[in-house]
């Protein structure tokens, strides 16, 4: 059995006496595509804050590659909810941001990302400002900015949440294809059940706040799922069962209200 690359062990966290995370335990295998699925406001983004060092757990332990996580090692590349592209930087300089922060010279950093523009569907837009790009292109640029940091794990926080339905679908198809090619280790935060099912190897289902891992669901469907003859129908069944579970009373009601 493969050792998990990342393991969260009974993590709890509260902000000003409000419990946000309660005994969160989950793991991520190398090269795995994992989703954290939960209702809005459940504390999904807080898990990423713990990983990037923007917040500290009240109790519990995070292990990376078998050792306790040291925040300064930064094994994560983070893609925030909205694309967070800087309007004063051309697309190419937006994508090199992480490299520049690491101390790489601009010229060298540009040389490093330039060959990737075509693969990310951004060929010819290197010198444009982000304002000139469509929503889907902006997300791809943001993902390119995340990937070129060359970190072991990608953290994607609802990357397609702000896109229209059609563009979101195209982006999901594209992301799956990219992942099949590169086999990045990805943790995807989403509240979109279909997105989680179509993209993930495993889904960690979170309860409403305080968030616990209610269930971990394996999605053993063949890839590439969007073009596979049977995968879509099977995915729909899994989607329905997850929705049923999320809508069932013991999940919906806050603790203590039910007998």
């Amino acid at each position: 059995m493969t050792e998990p690359l990342l393991r969260l062990d009974r993590i709890s966290l509260s902000y000003s006496e409000i419990d946000v995370l309660q005994d969160i335990s989950l793991d991520v295998l190398p090269g795995e595509f994992v989703s954290i699925l939960g209702p809005s406001g459940a504390g999904k983004s807080t898990i990423f804050k713990l990983l990037t060092g923007a917040a500290n757990a009240g109790s519990g332990e995070i292990q990376f590659a078998g050792k306790p996580l040291i925040a300064t090692d930064r094994p994560f590349a983070f893609m925030p909810q909205r694309d967070a592209l800087m309007p004063w930087r051309r697309i190419i300089d937006n994508t090199t941001l992480g490299l520049q922060v690491q101390g790489m010279r601009r010229k060298e950093a540009r040389k490093r990302v330039a060959p990737l523009f075509k693969e990310f569907g951004l060929g010819g837009f290197e010198q444009h400002y982000p304002q000139a790009l469509s929503g889907g292109m902006r997300q791809r640029a943001a993902l390119l900015r995340t990937v070129v940091q060359d970190r072991p794990v990608l953290l994607l926080d609802e990357p397609f949440g702000a896109l229209d339905a059609l563009t979101r679908n195209q982006m999901q198809i594209w992301l799956e294809a990219m992942w099949l090619k590169h086999r990045w280790t990805i943790i995807l935060i989403t509240h979109d059940v279909r997105e989680a099912v179509m993209l993930s190897d495993r889904i960690h289902l979170l309860s409403p706040r305080p968030a616990r891992v209610e269930r971990t669901i394996a999605v053993p469907l063949p890839r590439a799922r969007f073009s596979h003859p049977t995968a879509r129908a099977e995915a729909a069944a899994i989607e329905t069962s997850i929705l049923d579970f999320l809508l069932s009373p013991q999940i919906r009601e806050p603790e203590g209200l039910l007998p």
Binding site: T52, G53, T72, F78, Q81, A84, L97, G98
Partner: peptide, 13 residues
């Protein structure tokens, strides 16, 4: 924007 600052912080800036 907070997200830009969070992003830079996650990069170790």
């Amino acid at each position: 924007e907070n997200e830009v600052e969070d992003l830079l912080a996650s990069m170790g800036a």
